[in-house]
């Protein structure tokens, strides 16, 4: 019997998710024994045409990491969808929009301005030249993929069968997923292949929380020497544990927590959380300034709240494109599309 065919592809990604495959270490040899890797541009020499030539559904499973930011990525996602029986959104960028998704606080025009225009002090570009999808040169035409205004998660572009969360996903979850797929023991379509409990539920620091937390001051992690025995939130350092799915480490404690860093939410929300930011505001408002709340003026509250410098960026660090609001409403949303013909 021919071996099942597997493809790996990257879209708007940092390469960390590719590294996460390599991090399977010896296990990758087991995988290679069981499957044929038919496409993996980051690690092996394949061409897009190799995929185009395949029959529909010829690939058993395609793991796609990275968000969708350009035409090329969208096209490849669609192509792989056609050629693969199962598509897995691999990693936070693909699952939720991820770090590249933070670009949704801007649009193409403002991004180009800060990268190629006067907004960028290290760029000398007096003619204001910006990337064009087509440029005519004496030798002919040069083309570039179009750069989108809005970053999308993979499932905002194609139908996705499963998700493996994490920035980057931990090897043990990847391995579990591969084994499940190869053995045909598949969960329900659309499943996120990770535990459902919150990180707090699994956190060994949870017990250190006092019965009633009241934070008088919000501190950034760089401003404190945090006690490895104490819950970050109780100390006034924002930890996304209450609104984040567990499973980033096999041991229970979050990977970041074990490294004495607060969770930043890369695993995304557990099933009961509809919107990470909304829920995190609720969680924080219940503990910030709780003590003596009846004597606090609105100005006092504002002062306290203003210590959270960048709530949207902090809460949706990994998930802006899949948040309820999805992106910033630009006052002038790319009125004249001067960058794409």
């Amino acid at each position: 019997m021919p071996k099942p065919k597997v493809a790996f592809y990257w879209c708007a990604s940092c390469g960390g998710c590719e590294e996460a495959i390599v991090d399977l270490n010896e296990d990758i040899l087991k995988v290679v024994e069981l499957v044929d890797i038919v496409f993996w541009p980051c690690a092996m020499d394949f061409k897009y045409d190799d995929v185009r030539k395949m029959k529909d559904n010829e690939i058993t499973v395609a793991f796609i990491n990275g968000a969708i930011r350009t035409d090329e990525q969208e096209e490849m996602a669609n192509l792989l969808r056609k050629k693969a029986q199962i598509v897995v959104a691999f990693g936070s960028c693909s699952h939720l929009g991820g770090i590249p998704g933070l670009a949704n606080f801007w649009d193409r025009e403002t991004i180009f301005e800060s990268s190629y225009g006067k907004g960028c002090p290290s760029v000398d570009n007096p003619d204001g030249i910006v990337p064009q999808t087509v440029s005519k040169v004496p030798e002919g035409e040069l083309t570039l993929p179009a750069f989108h205004n809005t970053v999308k998660s993979l499932d905002q572009v194609i139908d996705v069968d499963y998700y493996i969360p994490g920035c980057a996903p931990p090897p043990y979850l990847t391995m579990k997923a591969i084994v499940a797929i190869l053995s045909g023991e598949l969960p329900e379509k659309g499943a996120i292949l990770a535990p459902e409990k919150t990180l707090c539920d699994e956190c060994s620091l949870n017990d250190s929380k006092p019965e009633k937390i009241s934070i008088k001051e919000i501190k950034r992690i760089s401003e404190v020497i945090s006690d490895p025995e104490k819950c970050f939130l109780a100390e006034g350092v924002i930890c996304m544990g209450p609104v984040t799915r567990s499973g980033c480490s096999e041991e229970g404690d979050g990977k970041c927590i074990s490294a004495n860093m607060p969770c930043r939410g890369c695993f995304g929300p557990p099933p009961e959380v509809k919107d990470v930011g909304g829920k995190m505001i609720s969680a924080l408002a219940s503990i910030v300034g709780l003590e003596g709340e009846e004597n606090m003026s609105e100005e006092d509250v504002e002062k306290l709240i203003n210590q959270i410098v960048d709530p949207a960026g902090y809460f949706y660090r990994f998930s802006l494109p899949t948040s309820l609001l999805r992106r910033k409403r630009m006052s002038n949303p790319a009125k004249e599309d001067r960058y794409n013909g």
Partner: peptide
């Protein structure tokens, strides 16, 4: 007793966040 105090803090932070979304 204290529901509206919590509301003050929630809405204050929410408004700050909404502004970042252009609202």
């Amino acid at each position: 007793k204290k529901g509206n105090y919590k509301a003050i803090r929630r809405i204050s932070l929410l408004k700050k966040m909404l502004r970042q979304f252009g609202i």
